[in-house]
Amino acid sequence: MTDYLEPLLVSLKTVAVTTVLTFFLGIAAARWMARYSGKFKSLIDGLFILPMVLPPTVVGYGLLLVFGVNGPIGKVLLALGEKIVFSWEATVIAATVMAFPIMYMTAKGAFEQVEPNIEAAARTLGAGEWRVFWTVTLPMAKAGVIAATVLAFARSLGEFGATLMLAGNIAGKTQTIPIAIYFAIQAGDMDKAMVLCIIVLAISFVSLAAIAYWKGMAAKMKPVKVS
């Protein structure tokens, strides 16, 4: 039983923290870039999307360079008594880096769709930037932001390559479901792999159903157009 429960718990914990992290980081970056028009726009945009176009193992290698005991951040953390590589936190870092681009891109698209004049109208009515964002931009981009969060959730649930390189395969600590599936198959344990696959299917199905239900509720709450 722990064979299944341990990867499930590690995955759920990682995905939960990653989704929340990605949500805020992605939205902040998307909001900033949606209205930014400086000369480094393409460069910054490219950097944010980079983890999506690179092979996950390349991203994993990069993360090892940064967070390894000789890396710039790894050294600092080591001095503070924290070792990132092969820790549970490493699964979060890897999954966040891999899920960030899709959150960022989708949310940015949604923010760009918000008509600038509507935000300007809120400002002329006395609303500061923070209020404009929470009461106008975000509600108007709601559908896109929900979609972005779902995609980020799915991406972090499926994260494999970068996680394996940075966090390794420690049962009960860094072994997420995708990694457990891979090593089960390596060991010839097809039954274990199948059960884990079914668990992933179930999680995906339940989340999709929850979102569909939520969207349906939202649509019902909106008043119908009168002619």
């Binding site: 109208a121 002329t124 106008v136 709601k142």
Partner: peptide
């Protein structure tokens, strides 16, 4: 902008689509 006390009616009105008429007027 927030402190200028200027009423602005935009070309295509720029009403808040997710707020009803009451909340639109109440916004300021």
């Amino acid at each position: 902008v927030q402190k200028r006390k200027v009423g602005f009616v935009f070309q295509h009105y720029a009403l808040f689509p997710h707020l009803n008429v009451w909340d639109n007027i109440a916004y300021g």
